[in-house]
Design a binder for these strands. Structure first.
Lengths: 250, 250
DNA sequence: GTGGATGTTCGGCAATGTCGAACGCCGTTC
DNA sequence: GAACGGCGTTCGACATTGCCGAACATCCAC
């Protein structure tokens, strides 16, 4: 890739490393992992600190992510068209289905949750906007895979006994395309299931997915199959959002 | 500032510009605003796009913030000690006071909201984690100003007739320090009030503020003064979080 | 057609950021 | 208590890096 500014790429690599690691990291560790001179990393970190993307723990000297990133992240949410168009439809879907609603896009081989509506009861739930989920073990992710919004993974992680294996994945995705929706039944977490459908943007391209998730008993019938009524709700919401996004208009 | 990597600073400036502007911006506008050559900005944008910090609208060619920032932002939330220590105390405060709770730190001369608990009724509220608020017109901000967590502004914006003016600010902050808490009564939004108290970290330094906000009628008594009961709740929560953060331990 | 936008490419120059070694500091170890 | 190894930090020299500006390809409006 010609013309790409390497100091910025290095800075981004450092930020990703800080986001993935356990809170704070030592300069020397970063330098070692990225195979760079300590002095080089120090210069980049100083700059990142200067712009607020990184903070330094005064006592240990270690580095961690900075507050400015939080604001940039939420600014992204405000901008994001997929999210803003979805909000009006996510709430009714949660109300009708009685389950939590999530909307996701692809980011670096995983599902990025860009919107989340809590299940409409009063149980304690944690907001997972900004969370990354695996593509192959979630209903949202399988939709995105099936409609080529993300490249097929070359290896997959197993979470439960029901997580689909790599060699079963193509056939599985074929069925998703046939049906027009995907399900995940205890493939990521025992006792949890989900149903999702594709959101299409301008030109019919799949740009995201919307789905509900909750306890298996509620989402599935006695045959361990997703309830048709809920599937219908999800697909209708997906279609409505797609329409809002300009799919179908010339 | 010697040794600061200028391409990274420029990249950060572009990101901040995208976050502040209206969604998407044209390359030429960015170049003009930052007084850089178009080619230079293009190279930086291409790199930012490559790392996912920026996305390009295929049809208009304009640039906007990218999805990777959302994940970095929420990673920051997971790391942030102020936030993680606060969560356990914010919920009880919301329950006891019956009002929305927010926790803020300083970012670039404004208050960054790092945690937000909704008012415990079922009215519709929007999550404003990641939002930036003015320092001088919010209870959270006045606490941060009073305890020198942020430098005094050189100019202030007026929002309502009750917003404090620049020349009144020092005396106002003196009173905040005397009391140990701050209030904002219709200074940012008509009909809304707030009460906040400082959160101290290791060594007694004020690292953030916690406060409640809601309708004036509920937060204030008939003399238009914050209700002592609510002030007590807020101060107690602030003290509890400060203790959790290691204030007072040698 | 033409003008003025846009984003994009390219080559040459030198300013820029990288490297590596040396520094100061702190905690542990012997 | 001195010596060691670890940390983050500074510095100067080298040449790689990424800047600039002009030219290019497109598009839209007039």
């Amino acid at each position: 890739m010609p013309g790409t500014v390497q100091s910025i790429e290095r800075a981004a690599a450092i930020l990703r490393m800080l986001a993935g690691g356990p809170g704070h990291l030592a300069l020397a560790d970063i330098a070692r992992s990225l195979d760079l001179a300590k002095g080089t990393v120090h210069g980049i970190l100083r700059t990142l600190q200067h712009v607020g993307f990184v903070e330094q723990d005064r006592s240990s000297g270690h580095y961690q992510l900075g507050a400015a990133l939080l604001h940039l992240g939420t600014s992204y949410l405000d901008i994001n068209e997929l999210r803003s168009r979805s909000i009006n439809w996510a709430d009714p879907l949660a109300a009708r289905s009685g389950e939590a609603v999530r909307i996701g896009t692809v980011l670096e081989g995983r599902v990025l949750v860009v919107h989340h509506v809590f299940r409409p009861d009063d149980t304690f739930q944690t907001l997972d906007i900004g969370t990354l989920l695996p593509l192959h073990a979630t209903a949202l992710g399988k939709v995105l895979l099936a409609y080529r919004a993300a490249p097929l993974p070359s290896a997959v992680e197993g979470f439960t006994r029901r997580t689909v294996a790599l060699r079963e994945l193509p056939a599985h995705l074929d069925r998703v395309r046939e049906n027009g929706w995907a399900a995940d039944i205890e493939e990521l977490t025992l006792g949890e299931a989900a149903i999702a459908a594709p959101i299409r943007g301008y030109g019919g391209l799949v740009v995201g997915a919307i789905g509900i998730s909750g306890r298996v008993e509620r989402l599935c019938d006695s045959h361990y199959e997703p309830r048709a009524r809920l599937v219908g709700y999800v697909r209708n919401a997906a279609r409505a959002i797609s329409r809002d996004l300009g799919w179908g208009v010339s």
